[in-house]
Amino acid sequence: MRRPPRSDRPDTAATGIEPALGTRDRLHARLQEHLASAVSEFTAATALVVLVIALSFASPNFLTADNLFNIGSQTAVIAIIAVAQTMVIITKGIDLSVGSVAALAGVVGAIVVRDLGFSVWEATVVAIAVGAAAGLANGLLVAGARLPPFIATLGMMSAGRGLVFIITGAVGVYSLPESFQLLGNGQIAGIPFAIVITAIVAVSAAFMLSQSRFGQYVYAMGSNMEAARRSGIAVRRNLTAVYVLAGALVGLGGMVAASRVNSGQPNYGIGLELDVIAAAVIGGASLFGGQGRIAGTLIGAFLIAVVRNGSVLLGINIHYQQVIVGLIIWAAVYFDQYRRRRLEARG
């Protein structure tokens, strides 16, 4: 008798994810999820436009070229790491370690430039590798040891921050060459380099999720992990790959953040997970998995950045900014739950 294929190994007879998602009901569900994402993106985009119009009247400095480029540069780090968080959320996971890993990657990148004479590009590769290593650890804990993503990444959040303080002695890494600022403050044809990096990351991630087989696997795992496994998808391998890729992007974001301030800061990224989760959820990613797009995440990231920028221009206390972001998260998650209840009620 022929042995059935292992649950974590793709069936050679399977083509893509059709066995798991080939029924009429599942196709209808996917269509509903895409429609829900589009509605969320439209809602967030509308809110962003209204906010921009309101701030343009409230502050004469808001629509200046310098301020708009400043918003773009400030958004870059959040957007890059939010793209990483979106991929994890689509798989019905969460990554609470992004702030610690970004700080660790930025600090290591700064150290290899200052002490080992690495160029900024070589240091960027090192920072990405640090992030990918942390992502691999998260992936092995989630997919291999089958720990809940919340617990696995919570542990990495603590371990990563501890490593940062051990490496730096809780002191920032300074005395860096001017070239170190290229990623965060440099320009290409008048466009901030950070914005260019963000655009490349966003377009690449969007293409991967929408056009590649791996992207189909990501959505399939988030929609129904057991169905994805039964369809022949190598769940452990692909889920681990998601965390590794996300970690690499977090490492890149950490390097851009360090470059912006021309130093490696051990306290960087505390609370960053709140902003990137908010950006993903505001843009339509569902904490219940299987739903989310990069375009929506970018809208969410810019919405948060405009809220913070407008608050500064209007002299609003920084603590009120956190309250506003918290309220936005509540509204976005409630709206997601409301949509899902409506879809379930319709069968």
Rank of each mutant, 00 (worst) to 15 (best):
282 I>A: 05
181 Q>L: 12
291 Q>V: 14
160 G>D: 04
165 F>Q: 11
123 A>N: 02
255 M>F: 13
289 G>K: 00
218 V>L: 05
265 Q>C: 11
34 H>L: 14
275 D>T: 01
241 A>R: 12
313 L>R: 09
64 T>P: 06
201 V>Q: 05
191 I>W: 06
231 S>L: 00
297 T>K: 06
286 S>I: 09
228 A>P: 08
309 N>M: 07
203 V>N: 07
3 R>Q: 12
41 E>N: 12
45 A>I: 01
290 G>V: 03
95 D>N: 15
44 A>N: 01
60 P>R: 08
35 L>A: 15
311 S>L: 15
172 G>T: 12
237 R>T: 13
344 E>Y: 05
108 V>M: 03
298 L>A: 06
172 G>F: 07
56 S>R: 03
131 G>D: 04
210 S>H: 13
324 I>L: 14
188 I>E: 08
90 I>G: 01
73 S>H: 01
126 V>K: 03
41 E>K: 08
221 M>G: 10
26 R>K: 15
132 A>H: 08
165 F>Y: 11
84 A>L: 02
47 A>F: 00
45 A>S: 15
33 E>Q: 13
163 L>V: 05
137 A>V: 15
135 G>K: 09
126 V>H: 05
312 V>F: 12
187 Q>N: 14
269 G>W: 01
316 I>Q: 11
179 S>N: 04
14 A>W: 02
80 I>K: 00
75 T>F: 06
70 N>V: 09
305 A>Q: 11
46 T>L: 13
216 Q>K: 15
240 T>S: 10
230 R>W: 07
66 D>C: 02
256 V>P: 07
123 A>Y: 03
285 A>G: 00
100 S>F: 01
312 V>N: 15
91 T>H: 06
242 V>P: 05
191 I>S: 08
200 I>E: 05
29 A>V: 07
